[in-house]
């Protein structure tokens, strides 16, 4: 079975900030699901990307999975749900929120204090959502997350969202940002002036490009 390889081919942990320079392609490697056997971890988050979406046409598979080392599957799902309340996006697939859970899990794995605080926070937000944030109604989930504003846990999750959700190849595709362009020669011949819905500036204010 193939999964959307969210990790860089040669990196098991730090995948979020590892956008390959010069390429916004997701490397096509196969991570067999049996890999979980090698992990001590307790959770694995899985899902599918809606076929026909922009991301699906770009990803090698419509199935995604991330492995958690410290947190359980349910705890990971709570963090994903919290990410969706904090930064709700029609354009972003669930897999991106899976990255959030994986990154927070990595933080928890690196520091028992952080892990303890994270589990406490997860329990608190689940409790105030009536037991399970990921199954709560939109209004209830929002109130549960809003209620934690100002806590360390809230700050940790919100802050992690900024890099986990927005610094990855799937978000780049979904939001229309191509990332690095050096290898493609920049935009001098690729549409840096392609806006057509406003009048062009006069040549005095914006001279034509030098093309050699």
């Amino acid at each position: 079975m193939r999964v959307v390889p969210i990790a860089k081919a040669n990196s098991a942990i730090s995948f979020v900030s590892e956008c390959e320079e010069g390429s916004s392609e997701i490397p096509k490697l196969d991570l067999p699901i049996t890999r979980r056997n090698f992990l001590q971890g307790s959770g694995i988050l899985m899902g599918t990307i809606a076929s026909g979406s922009l991301i699906a046409s770009f990803a090698p598979s419509t199935v995604w999975a991330v492995e958690l080392k410290t947190l359980s599957k349910e705890q990971g799902e709570t963090l994903m749900a919290m990410g969706k309340v904090l930064f709700p996006h029609k354009k972003l697939p669930d897999a991106v929120y899976g990255l959030l859970a994986k990154d927070l899990d990595a933080k928890a794995s690196g520091d028992p204090e952080v892990a303890r605080g994270m589990v406490e926070g997860i329990n608190a937000v689940n409790k105030s959502a009536g037991g399970n944030l990921s199954k709560a109604s939109k209004a209830k989930a929002y109130a549960a997350v809003k209620g934690l504003e100002g806590t360390l846990f809230f700050g940790l999750v919100r802050g992690q969202c900024i890099t986990s959700l927005y610094d990855n190849d799937m978000a780049f595709v979904a939001l229309g940002y191509p990332g690095a362009c050096w290898e493609k020669g920049g935009y001098i011949t690729r549409g840096f002036q392609d806006l057509k819905w406003l009048p062009n500036p006069d040549a005095q204010s914006s001279p034509p490009p030098y093309l050699g």
Binding site: Y187, F192, Q193, D194, L195, L198, P199, N200, P201, S205, S206, P207, P208, P209, Y210
Partner: peptide
């Protein structure tokens, strides 16, 4: 030295 060519962001500012 000639000015640089303006990009899309400049077109909006200019307009």
């Amino acid at each position: 030295i000639p000015g640089l060519p303006g990009n899309n962001n400049y077109k909006v500012l200019h307009a």
